[in-house]
Design a protein around this nucleic acid. Sequence first.
DNA 1: CTAATTCCTACTTGATCAGTAGTGTTTGCA
DNA 2: TGCAAACACTACTGATCAAGTAGGAATTAG
Lengths: 146, 146
Amino acid sequence: MRLTAKSEYGVLAAIDLAVSFGGGPVSAREIAERRRIPPRFLEQVFVSLRRAGIVSAQRGARGGFSLNRDPDDITVLDIVEALEGPLSASVCDSERGEVCGQAGACAAAPVWSKATQALRDVFASTTIGELAGAQVVLDGSPADRA
Amino acid sequence: MRLTAKSEYGVLAAIDLAVSFGGGPVSAREIAERRRIPPRFLEQVFVSLRRAGIVSAQRGARGGFSLNRDPDDITVLDIVEALEGPLSASVCDSERGEVCGQAGACAAAPVWSKATQALRDVFASTTIGELAGAQVVLDGSPADRA
DNA sequence: CTAATTCCTACTTGATCAGTAGTGTTTGCA
DNA sequence: TGCAAACACTACTGATCAAGTAGGAATTAG
């Protein structure tokens, strides 16, 4: 019952991009080093984020990635769903109702739906912008990063 | 990001036991047939529930399982944690703080904690007794099951 | 032209899930 | 007393997925 490493790395990377939002693109390798993420793995994460329309890629020398939207308009849910697919707490959940063998007579289904919804609420109510603010504080003076 | 089938089966089985709470033990095979769960797999689920102190087992002919406590005193969280271990939404979560490589400077950690907490809240606030009530309604007259 | 960078596909290794299987142990009942 | 029904334990298997690695192609700044 846990998210995969992709979400974790994706959120960290998005925070990193948010911190330098407005500047030029940041390379995956740079972020990987700074956040201790396997570089080639992070590359793949970024490809997913690009395909989801969250970041843009600039290829070639001095290229890298940058956020497509204001960090305050990107939620953790955006990142997580881009990397994990739609959130669902149990097999017997999902929009298609009766996925478990209980054929519509499953009294447990509402619990799984509520669980999924609770997760969505948490993730949807936290923006990358907020987290970036916290990150700057944790890292010390933002000037260190400029 | 989903629970395993064990939780799903475990909750269904607990509901089933709750519906006939007060009567004698119910065999795993009977529940397996009624809820369309692989019988030998359900057996294992029950062993875990017994070890967690949620059900008691009565061995031998006419044996089976019964709930140890009143269904209203058993939450979905009890079942889920008995079967999946402690809930945690991400690697970088857990009581031990800094499991991710960010060494205490991880701005994302609070989100994962909040997510875990939200899940716990949902599961802890739903009792097997409630679900059993819903199940009886779904199945039709409770007399059908006596 | 070259070095840096993203992009795409495939592969590998290990873990985990879902279920099956065999065998042992306990117990109600005829 | 014996048998059948039930739980108990351990081990195994096939499939899937997670996490990361690898190789090379395309793009671009300088």
